[in-house]
Write a protein that binds this DNA or RNA. Structure first.
Length: 439
RNA sequence: GGAGGCGUCGCCUAGUCCGGUCUAUGGCGCCGCACUGCUAAUGCGGUUUGGGUUUAACGCCCAUCGCGAGUUCAAAUCUCGCCGCCUCCGCCA
């Protein structure tokens, strides 16, 4: 959620953000009304409770006096006073209880509205929908296969020739959009994992292996039960969710904590399987392993001072570029448009790798600055001197396995179906320089 | 899965039996001040979090003793449910 103070002092900022996202603007007015009703209800309850406590404090001593009263007249007088007080207290208790219920109800209504509200967009984000991204740069040049004298095979064909990818048996065992990595395919994933973790630890990240099943509070706190909810697997019997990214357990890791500003930034590199229902993508990317229900990923996640968040975002992007650069894959970097940010992000950069057989760039990494949005929902704060305030969280893909494997196989393939391994990756494959089809 | 124990404002801890004097005790840590060649020690004061109100500041009010509900004029304290941790047993990679 965003800072409630902004609603009271500068609601137009929220309206503008909603407008740029292409989302409901009237929610701001409903929020203003609900917020003021919430505060009024709370103030009413506080006042009644205060009166109730004041009366309650008189009852104890009065009961003591009643016990000690020596003669009947004094006793009767004390009893009468006590009865009157009790009658008042009982009446006040009823009213307080009602006021409390009303305050709680109003708070619930208001909080629900707050949770509907997406993060404030960064004003530098290009405005528009999915197609309105701005390309920031191109790195590397798509290979000229005609000059090399052969027609490129797609990743699945190469993967099958190498015995590296098996989607047929994936479907047999688990259904569509599931696959096996085998042989050099599995080795390739391990090598990429180790290379990614080597880079991340060299850059000061703490390696993490995270839970793949999380409680509703973790899923909701990271903003995945809003618009993205239909893509989340839910394990109903245990009321748990399968994470679509380790961003979820990495963000919830410090939920309800206050972190000393001196410890920031804290950087984690999380390894986990990721699960996505891919609802509404029927017919899209049905061949190969571009779009699958389960894959493994190394995710970078950072907690930092909000004042440093934009710089950190650039650092995350640079680390992503470093990794793809090392794999010698041509790519472009795009600045994602406001309508395609997702509810948590204020700004998002995607790296799209060149996929020869599709003659286009496809997303392989994504880094988001979620500013204080997730931290507020998850109650993660920083203490700076005597100030306690929400901190900023950011995330970025270091390597998402299937898509990077697609990019490697397609871009580095040879006419005979073999695949040259990029130099930087060879140490993680025992020095092997190429994968070659057998027979 | 079974039995028992436990959960208090950073950490440890008193309080829970028997409801009001809890505005939650003490120690450690931390912050400020004083004293002191420096450090240490000592003394004094402060130190949960969130909300509201005021905002020039001081302050005042409400909630918060794992979470939720209930009983009561009144709940850290009594009742019920849930969650988590520990010990033992069973099962298990």
């Amino acid at each position: 959620m965003i800072d409630p103070q902004i609603l009271r002092t500068d609601p137009d900022r929220i309206r503008e953000s909603q407008r740029r996202r292409g989302e409901d603007v009237t929610v701001v007015d409903r929020l203003i009304e609900a917020d003021s009703a919430k505060r009024a209800a709370q103030a009413h309850f506080d006042e009644l409770r205060n009166q109730q406590k004041l009366i309650g404090k008189e009852i104890g001593p009065l009961q003591g006096a009643l016990k000690k009263a020596s003669d009947d007249t004094a006793k009767a007088a004390a009893q009468a006073e006590l009865d009157a007080l009790m009658a008042k207290a009982t009446d006040l208790a009823d009213r307080t209880k009602a006021a409390e219920a009303a305050a709680n109800e109003q708070a619930e209504v208001t909080d629900a509205l707050w949770l509907q509200l997406a993060n404030l967009v960064n004003l530098d984000s290009p405005v528009g929908g999915e197609e309105d991204f701005v390309t920031l740069e191109h790195v590397g040049t798509p290979r000229d296969f005609a000059a090399d004298g052969f027609e490129p095979r797609d990743h699945l064909e190469i993967g099958e020739m190498l015995g590296a990818i098996d989607t047929v048996r994936g479907a047999k065992v688990s259904g569509s959009r599931f696959f096996y990595l085998r042989g050099v395919g599995a080795q390739l994933e391990f090598a990429l994992l180790n290379m990614a973790m080597a880079q991340a630890t060299a850059n000061g990240f703490i390696p993490m292996i995270t839970p793949s099943l999380v409680l509703p509070s973790a899923m909701d706190g990271t903003g995945f039960l809003g618009q993205a909810a239909e893509n989340v697997y839910r394990v109903e019997a245990d009321d748990l969710y399968l994470v679509g990214t380790s961003e979820v357990p990495l963000a919830a890791y410090h939920a309800d904590e206050i972190i000393d500003a001196k410890e920031l930034p804290i950087r984690y590199a999380g390894w986990s399987s990721c699960f996505r229902r891919e609802a509404g993508t029927y017919g899209k990317d049905t061949r190969g392993i571009i779009r699958v229900h389960q894959f493994d990923k190394v995710e970078m996640f950072v907690y930092c001072d909000p004042a440093d968040a934009e710089n950190e975002h650039q650092r995350l992007l640079q680390w992503e570029k470093d990794f793809i650069d090392a794999l010698e894959i041509p790519y472009r970097v795009i600045d994602v448009a406001t309508g395609d940010l997702g509810s948590s992000a204020a700004r998002k950069f995607d790296i799209e790798a060149w996929i020869p057989t599709q003659d286009t760039y496809r997303e392989v990494t994504s880094t988001s600055n979620t500013t204080e949005f997730q931290a507020r929902r998850l109650k993660i704060r920083m203490r700076d001197g005597d100030k306690t305030q929400p901190l900023a969280t950011l995330n970025g893909t270091l390597v998402a396995m299937p898509r990077i494997i697609v990019a490697i196989l397609e871009n580095h393939q040879q006419a005979d179906g073999s695949v040259v391994i990029p130099q930087a990756l060879r140490p993680f494959l025992g020095g092997v320089s190429a994968f070659t089809p057998k027979g």
